[in-house]
Write a protein that binds this DNA or RNA. Sequence first.
RNA 1: GGGGGGAUAGCGAAGUGGUCAAACGCGGCAGACUGUAAAUCUGUUCCUUCGGGUUCAAAGGUUCAAAUCCUUUUCCCCCCA
Length: 406
Amino acid sequence: MKEYKNNNKFYFEITKKIPGKLGRAGIIHTPHGDIKTPAFMTVGTRGEVKFVSMEELKEITAQAMLSNGYHLRNKADEIAQNGGLAEWSGWNGPSLTDSGGFQVMSLGSGLGKVVSMKREQEIVNTDPKERLAHVTEDGVEFFDPFTNQKDFIGPEESMQIQCKIGADIHMAYDELTSLADSYEYNVEALARTERWAKRSIEEHKKHCDDLGYHQSLYGVLQGGRWEDLRRSTAKKFAKMEFDGYGLGGAFLKESLGDILKWCCEELPEDKPRHLLGLSHPDDILIGTEMGADTFDCVAPTREARHGRIYTKRGNIKLNKFKDSDELLDEGCDCPTCQSGWTRGDLRKLWKSPNIEDKKKYYTLSSIHNLRFIIRLTEEIRASILDGNFETYKETFLENYYHSKLK
RNA sequence: GGGGGGAUAGCGAAGUGGUCAAACGCGGCAGACUGUAAAUCUGUUCCUUCGGGUUCAAAGGUUCAAAUCCUUUUCCCCCCA
């Protein structure tokens, strides 16, 4: 096996705090480079961002990539033999792997459902008989719809997989509960996630000992929407040997800020925190304010592929801009906008029966939306450093969510 | 000139006497999408004052009942001269 390039150089440095808030701008130093926070990590579940090349990611100043141990589990040995995730994927910047914990819900209680943040309709868990994933004390048994085979991942397996993949940051194995789960179930699931966290640390340590250096591990906080659960678990995790924290859970929009606050007030200030799976502008703003340093989300790319384009004045549905000669977002610095693509022309590509045209559309729109979110984090960072985060936040939200000039 | 096949909603295409305003696909329209079972999913798509009204190339006919059967006409495709 090839030697990994870097020894451990993981630490977090706070550059400036938002006065009176939990939020801060900082730098996460990793073996593959620095992440200036707040930062958005592009999601490359299988080691590549859909329809976007590594060069294009660099061009829009993407800082880090998140991949998933669940999806890469059968390639972990191959990845290790090829020098780890950075060499294997071609993404030579900072990286993070998720534990596969999200799949507990997406293949289990939330199978076939949208991970909603709204309360508009009643949220009901998928019938246990129809789920593809089932939780036990040991871990998660699941049916992989791609390989059509049964499989199992517990904390030990997740750590083994992630250590082989060798991203800069690993995630402890956790169980994400759904919005439909009761307090009682969350108590049970949270206790299990805490036990899994301990097992994750132990297994992770073994591999680091074998490797001869430390790889970073984040503990993932759960606890649903209950303050007592969130605070108690955060206190416990704060005392454990984690290098940072993942803030996990299924959130309602209106409770996101409170939940993050409960967690971050209990966590050590000097460790980085990653808000898992969220990136709509308001989520990033409230997340940063409440103490989250990094973010990841499939929304920018998925919504782009589905015809939703981000603009300063709110997101638009491309479908409504047939033959429009408007730019996607006036003044945007992304390569797509800089090349002069109009809404009408992009829509033509999207609606084209030609598959190559469609792919071109997916690339152009994904680049735009990703750059939009990355630029947002850059501007938030600048506003924190300049001491005018509040003003920036209010102005941005006003333009994005309340503009009538869409 | 002779023989055969076909014409169905914006398009493609099922249906071959009643349960047909007519499956399905595309396109259109509307909505969704947040640690990627997601180049996906959901709803809708003749008109309507929601009682009903007018449709399956056109016109006649048979029948209690026709997109479906018969006759003629128009157009399209194939084969033989």
